[in-house]
């Protein structure tokens, strides 16, 4: 069961994918769809987020907001 959750600012995402190897639980991947700028943006692909914020802190564009249940 998920303990964490992330919110992705899709239009701010440039699809660089730097966050993907930073995630310990393989929660995130690039979408097949693109945002308004034409980037394959980041999306959540499962419920395994633990709210560690690793993805957010390596993101150069401040795309990700992280929550973790207490």
């Amino acid at each position: 069961m998920a303990k964490g959750a992330i919110v992705i600012d899709i239009e701010r995402c440039k699809g660089c994918g730097v966050c993907i190897p930073a995630c310990p639980n393989k929660v995130i991947a690039l979408a097949k769809k693109v945002n308004k700028k034409g980037y394959n943006y980041l999306e959540v692909q499962n419920d395994n987020c633990i709210g560690c914020a690793n993805c957010a802190i390596v993101c150069p564009d401040g795309v990700i907001t992280v929550y973790r249940a207490k």
Binding site: M1, A2, A53, A56, T65, V66, Y67, A69
Partner: peptide
């Protein structure tokens, strides 16, 4: 716990700093 229950202000652990525009 589902996603909606987690995404609440009291559970915030990381957000973009307001010192960036």
């Amino acid at each position: 716990m589902n996603r909606e229950d987690i995404i609440k202000p009291e559970n915030l652990v990381y957000r973009r700093t307001p010192v960036l525009t």
